Computed example of a mutant assay.
Amino acid sequence: MRKILLPAVLLGLACAGAAQAENVHVNPTNGFISRAVKVPAGSDTLYVSGITPQTVQGAPAATPFGDTKTQVQSILKQIGDILQGQGYGWEDVVMMRVLLVGDPAKGGAMDFAGMMEAYNEVYGPLKKKPARITSQVAGLVRPGMFAEIEVQAAKSAK
Rank of each mutant, 00 (worst) to 15 (best):
M1G: 15
P7E: 12
V9L: 15
L10P: 03
L11N: 03
L11G: 12
G12N: 12
H25R: 11
V26A: 09
P28H: 14
P28S: 12
G31R: 13
F32C: 09
I33G: 05
V37S: 05
V39T: 15
A41R: 00
A41M: 07
Y47W: 03
G50Q: 05
I51G: 03
P53I: 14
T55P: 07
G58N: 14
A59I: 04
A59Y: 05
A59E: 09
A59K: 13
A61F: 07
T63Q: 12
P64R: 12
P64Q: 09
F65S: 00
F65W: 02
G66Q: 06
G66N: 10
T68K: 10
S74A: 10
I75V: 12
L76V: 06
K77N: 08
I79G: 11
I82D: 00
G87Q: 06
G87C: 07
Y88K: 06
W90T: 03
R97E: 04
V98G: 03
V98N: 10
V98M: 05
L99F: 01
L100D: 04
G102E: 11
P104Q: 12
A105N: 12
A105E: 11
K106T: 09
G108I: 14
G108D: 05
F112C: 00
V122E: 10
Y123R: 07
Y123V: 04
L126Y: 08
L126Q: 09
K127T: 10
K127S: 08
K128L: 11
K128V: 06
K128Y: 01
Q136N: 05
A138M: 06
P143R: 13
G144V: 07
A147V: 08
A147F: 09
V151R: 02
V151G: 03
Q152M: 15
K155I: 09
S156D: 06
K158D: 12
